[in-house]
Amino acid sequence: MTAQGSALKAPGATLAAIRHQEPLVHNITNFVAMDLAANALLAIGASPLMAHAREEVAEVVALAAALTLNIGTFSPAWVAAAELAAGEARRLGKPWVLDPVGVGATAFRRDNGRRLSALGPTVVRGNASEIRALAGLAGQGIGSAGKGVDASDSVESAAEAADVLARRLDCVVAVTGEVDRVTDGRRIATVANGHAMMTRVTALGCSLTAVTGACLAVQPDAFLATVHALALVGVAGEQAAGQATGPGSLRVAYLDRLYGLSPEELDLAARIEEAVA
Rank of each mutant, 00 (worst) to 15 (best):
L8G: 14
T14W: 08
T14L: 09
A17S: 14
I18W: 11
I18R: 10
H20E: 15
Q21S: 12
N30T: 05
D35M: 00
L41N: 06
L49N: 01
H52C: 01
R54G: 13
E55S: 13
V57R: 11
E59H: 02
A64W: 01
L69S: 11
L69M: 09
G72N: 02
P76C: 10
A81I: 01
A81G: 01
A82R: 03
A82T: 00
R114N: 00
S129W: 10
L137K: 11
Q140D: 13
S144P: 03
A145E: 14
A158G: 07
D163T: 13
L165R: 06
R167D: 09
D170N: 15
V172F: 03
V172H: 01
A174Q: 00
E178M: 11
V179T: 15
V182W: 02
T183D: 09
D184P: 04
R186A: 15
G194E: 08
A196V: 15
M197I: 15
T199L: 06
G205C: 08
A214N: 11
P220G: 03
D221A: 11
V233L: 02
E238D: 11
Q239E: 14
T245M: 10
L255T: 13
R257C: 04
R257D: 02
L258R: 02
L258Q: 00
L261P: 12
L261R: 10
E264F: 02
L266S: 03
A270E: 01
E274R: 10
V276N: 04
